[in-house]
């Protein structure tokens, strides 16, 4: 081979991986993330197995939480405070809200712990770091599925049929997931550095429950407080979620648009932040 040919051969075989100092902005690297889909699935399955194994009632625990809160809400808000529930049985109203809010709650708390709960993995093995929070999110969706199945049973029992609005159901779920995942990712990345962020996030989510239309209808909020109430991006998403299920009340468009905008902006932003902070995970975790 002539030297020129040799050089050409050398050029034709670039390294598979080139590792250098961190420069430039972070990239999401979706193609690489896709190559880790098996791992993502395995980790999600691991989360589920660990959650359901060695518990006598297993899957029952997943729905017991929402059922109990819905029961308590029914007592407090329906029997004692006599709140309106958009024309459907109050228990169903509260249970649907609890399940929808539960996805958000679980996403934020579990995703924010997904890195610090897997320190050996992060500090010993390389893989696309988004795999961990995404696997956690996936396993959370399975819990949600169980909740929805139970919700469907209650609806059949109460003889309540969803209208055509049910077709939009995946969109509302997607919206709640986007907002919850975004919050969880940012909190999770920050928790790697400062452990107390996880606690703060959990506290905020608990408080958010009371300013979201979970146990009461958004229509029950007086006009003077409405603007303040609607700062919470979950309002639009939760209203839409119920609208898709029951279609009882006409949907307020304003909060929905606001919620969609927040979801569409916050998810990419949180991915960017996560990838940015992620570069030092192994050094500081």
């Amino acid at each position: 081979m002539k030297p020129t040919e040799l050089a050409a051969a050398a050029v034709s075989r670039p390294p598979t991986v080139r590792i250098g100092p961190r420069t430039g902005g972070p990239r999401i690297e979706l193609r690489e993330l896709w190559s880790y889909r098996d791992l993502l699935l395995m980790l999600a399955v691991r989360d589920l197995k660990l959650r359901y194994r060695q518990t006598a009632l297993g899957v029952v625990w997943v729905v017991l939480g929402p059922l109990l809160s819905a029961g308590i809400f029914t007592f407090v808000f329906s029997r004692v405070a006599k709140l309106q529930s958009e024309g459907i049985p109050y228990f169903l109203f509260a249970f649907s809200g609890t399940i929808a809010f539960g996805v958000f709650n679980n996403l934020v708390t579990r995703v924010s712990n997904s890195l610090t709960g897997n320190v050996p993995l992060v500090s010993k093995v390389y893989f696309h770091r988004l795999v961990l929070p995404l696997a956690t999110a996936l396993s959370t969706l399975v819990d949600f599925g169980v909740g929805v199945a139970l919700l469907a049973l209650v609806m059949v029992q109460d003889r309540i049929r969803p209208g055509l609005g049910i077709l939009t159901f995946p969109l509302w779920l997607l919206l709640i997931v986007a907002i919850g995942l975004a919050a969880g990712l940012v909190a999770g990345a920050a928790t790697v550095r400062y452990r107390d962020v996880g606690v703060v996030a959990q506290l905020l989510v608990q408080m958010l429950l009371y300013v979201s239309p979970v146990a009461y209808s958004a229509s029950a909020v007086p006009g003077s407080a409405k603007l303040f109430f609607e700062i919470n991006p979950l309002v639009g998403a939760l209203n839409g979620f119920r609208w898709a299920l029951f279609g009882t009340r006409s949907l307020d468009v304003g909060p929905v648009i606001y919620s969609v905008v927040v979801g569409m902006l916050s998810l990419p932003l949180s991915l960017y932040l996560f990838r940015r902070i992620e570069r030092v995970f192994a050094d500081v975790i």
Binding site: P15, T16, V17, R18, I19, G20, P21, K124, R279, A282
Partner: peptide, 20 residues
Amino acid sequence: KIISRITHPDSGTVEIWGRI
């Protein structure tokens, strides 16, 4: 740790041909 991509170097490069 740098070769297995767990952490980044401050400067310098590692080039790898093949799966590690």
